[in-house]
Simulated assay, not measured.
Amino acid sequence: MRSSAPMPGNPWPHDMSITVDDSPHILMELLWLREAYELQPEGDDLPPLLVDTPVAVPDPAVRAATRDEWGATWPRIWHAALAHAGRDQDPRLFDELRTTADGSPERAELLHRIVGPSWRDEFGDTAFDHGSFATWSQKGAEAHLAAMPARLEDQPERRDLPALIPAWRAGLTKIVTIPCAGEFTHRVGENALLTTSATRENSDSYRRALGTFA
């Protein structure tokens, strides 16, 4: 949301631009994988468990030693993917992408810069071949669409504008949400906040989250 000039009666600052990413694909893959394969990652500021627990992948699919390796690696990939998700996307990358040839190294490099680090970079696509991932993703997408506010004024950023403006003035430009349980907020770099969907949906918790940035 942004306008080129002040609009009388509109409380939204005309030069304030906030991006909300409420379906970060790479982060969703990592959250699903953590629970579907029953990994036990350890580290600081890891997100809570998903609200909608995915169906576990059958034990024989992945050996215990592999699960241990995945669990140990998961926090590093999570933090790298989260850092990328928190950055404001450079629109020039998409312009450059259109000038590259299909299958070229230049296109692959640009795509990686756009998508960012992921689980697939190190372990390939095999972990996501199980039907549990497709089923969980589709169910989550439908629930997300059903929960979207019908009116502009009901959007959390409009609803909690008095708390959003000071956070924006302090440098906030992007909000990333994940479908995990409970109230959770984590600052990402100099410009972004990670919250759970539950945190953003509730005015009290969302204002607390925004207050951590201001």
Results as ranks from 00 to 15, higher is better:
95 D>A: 11
176 V>M: 02
173 T>V: 11
180 C>M: 05
104 S>E: 12
87 R>E: 15
84 H>I: 02
58 P>W: 04
206 Y>A: 05
69 E>R: 14
133 F>W: 15
115 V>H: 14
183 E>Q: 08
82 L>A: 07
38 E>C: 14
55 V>S: 15
73 T>G: 02
20 V>L: 14
71 G>L: 10
6 P>N: 04
169 R>V: 02
209 A>I: 02
72 A>C: 08
97 L>S: 03
72 A>G: 06
78 W>T: 00
24 P>A: 04
6 P>F: 03
205 S>K: 04
141 A>R: 14
144 H>G: 05
113 R>W: 01
108 A>T: 11
48 P>W: 07
52 D>N: 15
107 R>H: 05
165 I>T: 14
81 A>I: 09
105 P>M: 12
22 D>W: 00
10 N>F: 01
207 R>G: 04
35 E>W: 12
145 L>F: 09
212 T>A: 10
99 T>W: 06
103 G>K: 09
161 L>G: 05
27 L>R: 04
39 L>T: 09
42 E>A: 01
51 V>K: 13
25 H>T: 10
43 G>S: 14
53 T>P: 08
140 G>V: 03
26 I>S: 12
15 D>M: 05
77 I>P: 02
187 R>A: 01
83 A>V: 00
20 V>W: 09
117 P>V: 11
189 G>H: 10
75 P>M: 00
133 F>Y: 15
64 A>V: 13
89 Q>V: 12
143 A>D: 12
186 H>L: 06
